[in-house]
């Protein structure tokens, strides 16, 4: 059985339909990326799969006792709320000390435990979010634009880390991105979203689909042609 699946999902926010006829599933051990332009409903879809927004039609099914590690797109910490990294990692449940140490080292934020969350750089902040998500030993990682604030090298390292975690723990990964390039290399399956699912499949397959080009424009073609052969040092204007 899939970790999470949706069938014929429709979601309306404030009377406006933002997601329509969505059917998808995420299995253990695979990395699935949701790709789509701004406002295409990516975050809403994640929230619907979490149960944070209700479906107006269709169904969402989660495996019984599914543990989700969630990295939200934005986490605005009110300046009146004092929160160190160590305390943040203990939400919602206190984590085992040794395990916390291991995860902190794993994501590369050692020595920052006593810092306030608001004092972290963008990259450190994203890593702290990931560390917290990993501490719950999730069956499913849901990452909403997890590489914001990371430079290209940091981004590549981040996806490598996700890949390692997936292999070690066998968890499924569902992430959201509007970044076409790096993400394509890091995923097993890509789902292109624009209110409804436009196309889906293995990255190389999707990259050649007309619907994909219709969604992201002609400008992406050059970059995508490069995609299978891309190595370090190649820069595109779109990044």
């Amino acid at each position: 059985m899939s970790l999470v699946s949706a069938s014929g999902l429709q979601v309306a926010l404030g009377g406006r339909v933002v997601l329509e006829d969505i059917s998808l599933h995420v299995d253990a051990g695979e990395i699935v990326t949701l790709l789509g332009p701004n406002g295409s409903g990516k975050t809403t879809l994640l929230r619907a799969l979490l149960g944070a927004v209700h479906a107006t039609d269709g169904t969402v099914e989660r495996k019984t006792d599914l543990v989700v590690g969630y990295v939200p797109q934005r986490l605005a910490i009110d300046p009146t709320l004092p929160l160190t990294v160590a305390r943040f990692l203990d939400l919602p449940e206190r984590a085992d000390r040794a395990r916390k140490g291991a995860v902190v080292a794993r994501v590369g934020i050692e020595g920052l435990e006593r810092r306030a969350m608001t004092e972290l750089s963008g990259g450190q902040f994203q890593r702290a979010l990931l560390a917290r998500a990993l501490l719950s030993e999730p069956h499913l990682l849901m990452l909403d634009e997890p590489t914001q604030g990371l430079d290209q090298a940091g981004e590549a390292a981040f996806y490598e880390l996700i890949d390692e975690v997936r292999h070690e723990t066998g968890c499924g990964v569902l992430m959201v991105s509007h970044d076409l390039h790096v993400v394509m290399r890091a995923s097993d399956r890509v789902i292109c979203l624009n209110r409804r699912i436009c196309c889906e499949g293995a990255p190389a397959q999707v990259a050649s689909m007309p619907a994909y080009h219709a969604l992201f424009g002609r400008g992406t073609e050059g970059a995508l042609a490069l995609y299978p052969h891309r190595h370090h040092g190649v820069r595109e204007g779109a990044a």
């Binding site: 979490l50 944070a52 919602p92 449940e93």
Partner: peptide
């Protein structure tokens, strides 16, 4: 306490944690 804190921090984070 911990649940209230998580819900205060971010509703989606809370949802994912079963709160």
């Amino acid at each position: 306490w911990s649940r209230l804190l998580t819900a205060t921090l971010n509703p989606d984070l809370a949802f994912a944690g079963g709160v």
